[in-house]
Write a protein that binds this DNA or RNA. Structure first.
Lengths: 322, 322
DNA sequence: TTGTAAGCGTTATCAC
DNA sequence: GTGATAACGCTTACAA
C-alpha cells in the first residue's frame, strides 16, 4: 500500500504538498499539482482514513443500533439509511443489539474506541444515559426516550385511530387488537389512538400482546379460536396480520365478509398477498432520510429546526376491509 | 476522552507501562499493575482503536458486501455473520452494493482506506480482480467466482434434483421452474440438478427467469395463466413460491391436489403459511459460521482445510406437496 | 508557493 | 521491571 510519502517522493515534493493537493487546501502551483496527481495515479494511492481519523478525531463512521435485521420494516429502513449515509460519504456500522444487554455493552465500548461520529438508535434501550455519555450526536427512531435527544417517529396514535375508524365504518362489533409488547411507547400510543376512536361506541374490544420479531403463531390461533365471533382485527405489524389471516382461513372465515383485518407498516409484500392487505403505512423513506440528514446537521454543529419529528401515517385500503 | 498519557500521569508511570498492562504483554510488577488499573478505571479510559489500528495496520473491521438487505435469506444470514463477527471481537461493516457499480466502486475504495481486515462477498460482482488487488482475505458465499478465493455455497444442484424428484414422485406431468436470473451460477446449477432428474422422463418442463429481489407478480400470473394445465411448480425462492401460490389460488387451483409447489431457502415464514410450504432448506447457520471462521483463520495466516465448501440442502416436506 | 516539524494515540524496541 | 523514543500515515501551523 502506497503512503503519502511514496507519492511525495515520486512527485519530488514534500508530504505537505501532497496533503494539500488531496485536501484541496492551501495554495499549490498548478504544475506541482499535476505532478502530484500523476504520482497518485501511478501508485494507485488512496489516503489512509485511519490516520486521518486519528488526527481529526473523527472517523466518518456512523453507527446504527437495531434490535434485529429480520423484519421487512427494519430491513427496508436500513437500506434507506445505508444508502443516504454513503451519499454523505460516511460509512455505516450496523450493530445488532439482538435485545441482548451483553451485545449492547460491547457496542457501547466500540462506539468510544472508534470515534464514531454519530449514532442512530432504532433498538429500544434502557441505557440511554450511557449513550449520552458518549457525547456524540444521536438520533432516535421510533422511540422518544428522553427530551434532549432528537427523535423521529411515526404518528402511532393516528395509526391506531385510523385503523379503528376504518373498522367502525366497516360495521365491526367485536375487534381484537394484536399488538406489540405493551412496554413500548409506540405500542401504547397505537393502543391509545385505537381506543380513542372506540370510546363511547358500543364495540367490544381488547388488546393482546405479541412479540414483534416472532409473534407466536399459537397465541394468535388460540385467541382467534376463543373469539370466533369477532369481526375485526387490527395488528401492530403486517407480519402479525399475515399470520392472523391464515388462522382465520383455517377457521373457515371469509375476509373481509366475516372478518376485516388491518395491518401496520405496509411492507412490500402487503400488496402482493391474497387478499391484498389493508394496512397503516409508515413512511420509511421520510423517517430514514430525516434521521440521516439530521444526524449530519448535528455532526456539522448545525441547528435542528425540528427536534422531535412526527410523521403522519396513512391508511392504505385494500382487500381485507370492506 | 482520556488517553493513555492521562492514565500514565495519574498512575505515575510511563505510557509504555500502561500499554503493557492493557495488552498484558511484557513484565509488569503486580503493584504497578494495580495502580494502572485503578487509574484506567478512574478515568474511564478505553484505548483508541484508531491509533491502535494505525500502528498495527489492522482495523479489526471486516466488511460484508450484500446485494440488498430486504430478503429473509440475506437478513437471516447477516444476523448470523454479525453475531459471530462480534464474538471474534471484530466489527462488521455492512455494505449494500444494491447491484449498483457506483456503490461498489465507493466501497472498494473504502476497503482500502480503512485497512479492512477481511471481506465476505455475498453480492455477485464482475470485479473480482479488483477485490483480489485489495490483498486481504476474502470468502465468497453463494458464488464461486474464481478458484483461488475460498467459497461456500449450498449444493444447488442437489436442491434442484431433490425438488424435481419430489414432484416426479408426486405424479407431476407438467412442471414450471420459476428461477432466478440465469446468469447466476447458483441458478444454473439448480436448473441442471432439476433437469437431471427429469431426463428421460416424459415430463414437460421449462424454466422462467425472475429477479430474486422483486420477482414480477405479473410475470408469475401470466405464466401460470398460460399454463393452467401445469401440476407442479418449483421456485428458486420461498418468496416466489408465496407469490405463485397466490396466483394459483386466484386461478382456483387447489394445493397440493391440483398443483404441487416447492420453494427454496426455508425462510422462517415458510412453516407459518397456509398451506405450509414445502421447500429446499439452505443451512444458513452452517454457511454463515463457515464464512466467518474461515475468514478468521485466513486473517491469522492459518491454513484452510477446505477451500471450496459445499453444504448439502434438505427437502422439507410440508403441505404444498403430496 | 513550498517544506519542516510537531502532533494525533497507540505499540514495540531498546536501553537502563 | 520500567522508561525513553521511534514509528504508524496523516494534517496543519509556522517558516522560509
Amino acid at each position: 500500500m502506497a503512503t503519502i510519502k511514496d507519492v511525495a517522493k515520486l512527485a519530488h515534493v514534500s508530504v505537505a504538498t501532497v496533503s494539500r493537493v488531496i485536501n484541496q487546501k492551501g495554495y499549490v502551483n498548478s504544475e506541482t499539482k499535476e505532478m502530484v496527481l500523476e504520482a497518485i495515479h501511478e501508485l494507485n494511492y488512496v489516503p489512509n482514513e485511519l490516520a486521518r481519523s486519528l488526527f481529526q478525531k473523527k472517523s466518518s463512521i456512523i453507527a446504527v443500533l437495531v434490535p434485529h435485521l429480520t423484519s421487512f420494516y427494519f430491513a427496508e429502513l436500513l437500506e434507506i439509511i445505508e444508502d443516504l449515509t454513503l451519499q454523505y460519504d460516511y460509512r455505516l456500522m450496523v450493530c445488532n443489539s439482538h435485545d441482548d444487554p451483553k451485545k449492547e455493552d460491547q457496542y457501547l465500548k466500540i462506539f468510544d474506541q472508534y470515534n464514531i461520529d454519530g449514532l442512530i438508535l432504532i433498538a429500544n434501550t434502557h441505557r440511554i444515559e450511557d449513550y449520552k455519555k458518549l457525547d456524540i450526536p444521536i438520533i432516535e427512531i421510533d422511540h422518544k426516550l428522553t427530551d434532549d435527544i432528537p427523535s423521529i417517529t411515526s404518528n402511532n396514535f393516528l395509526g391506531g385511530k385510523l385503523a379503528a375508524e376504518k373498522l367502525i365504518k366497516g360495521g365491526c362489533k367485536k375487534i381484537i387488537h394484536f399488538r406489540g409488547p405493551s412496554d413500548l411507547v409506540i405500542v401504547r400510543e397505537r393502543t391509545e389512538g385505537f381506543k380513542s376512536a372506540l370510546e363511547e361506541k358500543e364495540i367490544y374490544n381488547f388488546s393482546y400482546d405479541l412479540e414483534f420479531k416472532t409473534p407466536s403463531q399459537d397465541d394468535i390461533e388460540n385467541v382467534i379460536q376463543s373469539n370466533l365471533d369477532c369481526d375485526g382485527i387490527f395488528c401492530d405489524s403486517d407480519y402479525m396480520a399475515i399470520m392472523a389471516i391464515q388462522a382465520l382461513q383455517r377457521a373457515g372465515k371469509r375476509i373481509p365478509q366475516d372478518v376485516q383485518i388491518i395491518g401496520f407498516d405496509n411492507i412490500e409484500m402487503a400488496e402482493h398477498l391474497k387478499p391484498k392487505l389493508t394496512t397503516i403505512s409508515q413512511n420509511r423513506k421520510e423517517i430514514g432520510s430525516f434521521a440521516v440528514t439530521s444526524l449530519m446537521k448535528l455532526i456539522n454543529k448545525e441547528e435542528l429546526e425540528e427536534f422531535h419529528r412526527k410523521i403522519d401515517v396513512e391508511l392504505i385500503a385494500r382487500d381485507t376491509t370492506k
